Amino acid sequence: MTFIFAHRGSAGTHPENTMEAFVAAEIDGADGIELDVQLTADGEIAVIHDLTVDRTTNGSGYVNELTYSELSKLKANYHSLHFFKKSCRIPSLREVFEWLEANDLLCNIELKNAVNPYRGMEEKVVELVHEYCLERRVLISSFNHKSLVHCKEIAPAIITAPLYNEVLYKPWEYAASLGASGIHPKLKSISDREIIDTMACGIAVRPYTVNKEKDMKRLFAIDCSAIITDYPGKAYRLREQYQ
């Protein structure tokens, strides 16, 4: 069965990376959620995609220059009021983990450290995973592949997967060289044949961001390991046809 990961939660219907989007993903039948993390000025792990808060909130400035207290006071749905009027906050990773204790969802944590390396981020995230005993439900991805190698060094049992958006030759071999058990390619950068060959080598394939119905159907038909989508509800309904 192809697993469904809700990209930044149900980001197609709710403000991205908010508890409201994660709850909606669970209701819509997702098997897991995907979220992004960065470190605040006071070292907290905040769930937000951009380096700044400008696009998604009513604030401005860099995430790493604001305290979590300052971040938590911002309206995380400020620019999406057209489809969601309830006020939403930027959650912490701890808040998400507390919520995960009440369900069985998987959680794909993307470390947003390809531009800003965020020294110590890997240790902080891994420590929190251990604290909540989520080793079997969490997988860590990043465009910073050195960071993923570091994650495996400090926590060998944690599942890792490199994110990439270019065509990669024999991606299964590259993943193995990182100690990763999966890959998260941009959908257009990998063919069906490469997906099948990669899975045959024991490497899971979870393409992003799969929003079109035709792409969902194509990946369900070849039993792709998972898809990462803004519309988990639509994906869940389409997947029913292939079970």
Rank of each mutant, 00 (worst) to 15 (best):
F5Y: 09
F5H: 03
F5N: 04
S10H: 06
P15C: 06
E16W: 02
A24F: 03
A25E: 01
D31W: 01
G32A: 02
D36G: 08
Q38E: 00
T40R: 03
A41I: 00
D42I: 03
I45A: 00
V47C: 00
T52N: 08
V53C: 04
T56I: 08
N58M: 05
N58T: 05
G59Y: 10
G59T: 06
S60K: 12
S60Q: 09
N64C: 10
N64G: 12
E65S: 15
L66H: 00
T67A: 01
Y68C: 01
L74D: 04
A76R: 04
Y78E: 04
H82W: 14
F83V: 12
S87N: 14
P91Y: 00
W99G: 02
K112Q: 10
A114Q: 12
Y118T: 05
R119Y: 13
G120I: 13
M121D: 07
E123Q: 12
K124A: 11
L128H: 11
H130W: 14
Y132D: 00
I140G: 05
S142P: 13
S147P: 10
H150I: 09
K152A: 12
E153R: 10
I154H: 13
P156W: 04
T160V: 13
T160A: 07
L163H: 06
L163C: 15
L163E: 09
Y164N: 10
E166T: 13
L168V: 12
Y169N: 14
Y169E: 10
A175L: 10
L178I: 13
I183W: 08
P185D: 04
P185L: 00
P185M: 02
L187D: 11
K188P: 15
I190E: 02
I195T: 07
T198S: 08
M199D: 07
A200D: 14
A200T: 06
A204K: 02
V205Q: 01
Y208I: 03
Y208F: 11
T209W: 10
T209A: 03
V210Q: 04
N211F: 15
N211S: 14
K212M: 13
K212H: 11
K214H: 13
M216G: 09
M216C: 13
K217F: 10
R218H: 07
A221Y: 15
I222R: 04
A226G: 03
A226F: 05
I227E: 01
D230W: 06
Y231H: 07
G233N: 06
A235M: 07
R237F: 15
L238K: 05
E240I: 11
E240W: 14
Q241E: 15
